[in-house]
Nucleic acid binder design. Structure first.
Ligand SMILES: [Mn+2]
Ligand SMILES: [Mn+2]
Ligand SMILES: [Mn+2]
Ligand SMILES: [Mn+2]
Lengths: 219, 219
DNA sequence: TCAAATTTTTAGACTAACCTAAAAATAAAT
DNA sequence: ATTTATTTTTAGGTTAGTCTAAAAATTTGA
């Protein structure tokens, strides 16, 4: 059975691997886990000996199939717990991540599969991120940034890039939530801010906001 | 924030303190936690420095109010998680303890209080043990061992002493469960076995069984 | 292409939580 | 009241996971 630390390393490497085909650098992992590069080197050696990553000195690491499966399972647990907290325990979507970081390391297959059923086999977590299935397969859905949507186009909010409390509470305040239809009314060339409509409300959002909201094109 | 290990020591001392007024010996704690006496000495010193136990060398430890409150809270979490697993996640009462040992160390006040509400503020866990309230108060209920019940008397099963899987599954097989009424029909002087009736079933149980079932006298 | 900057690894140390074996204190038995 | 047995503590070590500082390898870029 893997330690909490080993699981966190695999998860970090998994997340970093989504964006690139190359090996993941020691420094990137260190930054992701808020630790030092020398610690990463040590751990990566251990994971390599356990057959969970491929590691070539000075050239970064990649997950093996075995390591990838374990990482996906940790992420599955994290996201299912987040759904439970929001849907059953009255957590807001900005409150779940920290607790899920603890809960994702609970070892019990029965627990997670029963929870999955109890929640009705959700496909996405409260932030719109896909939940891996039992075998570790993830359904990466197509998504665009709101900032890329043209004037007079409609889109549906399906996720968030930034998941900080500050950002999520801003979205709450503006009543921007998953599933909401957003119409782009105007774009300001100078600062790339946008005038948008959600339901009956019209308001302006900055580029920084628009580049942190994932949407699905509507037509 | 306390480590998992520190919490486990406090919990062990709490459980051992229920049965005695005296200080808890190093050896007793070592046995409870399946560790060595020398390790206990180390940890007890640390807990003492943190003001969670009173420790006099060679004379055992007792919990301070602060330590007792923390221990009770860990037990509260353990038992509430057990209720969740049985009532919502289809766990049998012999399957919950191991997972609850992990879950009891999750740190989130909101989580445990929401869970408490979600479960309808249960007073007892699946094994009949009382669940401490938010402030750490426990309602120790009066209970007798089934072995002490006289012939022709009725009693209601309200708890179990042994919580091993083997014992709990034996109870399942015999359809002995919390809340069931048990009538003592005969007692065998030679081996202290008992003939009992539960519902329409009559059968004999050994003394070992009878001394591991808690009951409440009925009349 | 080769010196400078950057990244990565190694070397050595630290802490928490364990352990074994020996010493010290307490408890039990003659 | 001593001696003996038991319990507890101390001393010294181990492992996992972390750190800093220095050495080595790679990358950049003049
Ligand atoms: Mn999260
Ligand atoms: Mn999430
Ligand atoms: Mn239990
Ligand atoms: Mn229990």
């Amino acid at each position: 059975m893997l330690s909490k630390s080993e699981e966190n390393y695999l998860k970090a490497i998994f997340h970093l691997s989504v964006k690139t085909e190359k090996g993941i650098s020691t420094n990137a992992i260190a930054q992701q886990l808020d630790t030092k590069a020398s610690s990463v080197t040590d751990m990566v050696k251990k994971l390599s000996e356990k057959g969970l990553v491929l590691y070539v000195k000075y050239h970064g690491v990649t997950l093996t199939d075995k390591g990838e499966k374990i990482a996906a399972n940790v992420i599955r647990k994290h996201r299912l717990w987040e759904v439970l907290l929001v849907q059953k325990f009255n957590f807001n979507w900005d409150e779940v991540h920290e607790v899920a970081e603890q809960l994702e390391h609970i070892h019990s297959k029965k627990l997670i599969n029963e929870m999955d059923a109890f929640l009705g086999f959700p496909k996405h977590d409260p932030h719109g991120d896909p939940i891996p299935d039992k075998d570790g397969n993830i359904n990466f859905l197509e998504k665009s940034l709101l900032s890329t949507i043209g004037v007079n186009m409609k889109a549906v909010c399906i996720g968030v890039k930034d998941t900080s409390s500050d950002f999520l509470r801003y979205l709450d305040k503006q009543e921007i939530a998953l599933g909401k239809e957003i119409t782009v009314l105007e774009k300001e060339a100078f600062d790339n801010s946008m005038l948008i409509r959600i339901g009956a409300n019209e308001f302006t959002i900055s580029q920084q906001i628009a580049t942190n909201i994932y949407v699905k094109n509507k037509e």
